[in-house]
Amino acid sequence: MTDRWRDLEDDGRRTAETIFSALDVARGLTDCRAPSRPSVSAIWSALATGRALPGGIVPDADLDALLADAASVAFPRQAAAATPQDGIDRHADGARLRVVPSLGAPGQSYLAISFDDPTATASRLIAVGDGAEPLVFALPPPVDGMVQILVDNSDPILVALADADARLYLV
């Protein structure tokens, strides 16, 4: 065994080099102060436990894939935009979502979600549009396989539902 640099052959010097750079990089990773994003597990956990989604989520295809796996029902994009006044009607495997104008209050609409399986349940409706943080809407427990809420037509969830590109998830 030698402890002189000149006695190290190429392999030995390369080993030293590799160890040094690995130490340096490992330290760099550990010490980095880059701003963190909402973690995948924080998003998933929020979906699973009913807690609020962490702020700062940037929608992308990966988020959609994650939401689709976490959700009990995923509504795809719809072919054309609609307005609450027209009555929104979106179908997915397992559920149907409609927005029905209230006859009793013209400025309000019913958001009605009916499940194919009467025992199915969902606690939240999440709407993901492009370029904005996901919109989360708490749902009451379904009754006989149907969730119904009454909202003002100005409610952001109706605006999101009217967006043909919005993806909807029942979680």
Partner: peptide, 9 residues
């Protein structure tokens, strides 16, 4: 009192 869409509750 207002009658509403029969598909609702």
């Amino acid at each position: 009192i207002t009658a509403e869409d029969p598909a609702l509750r």
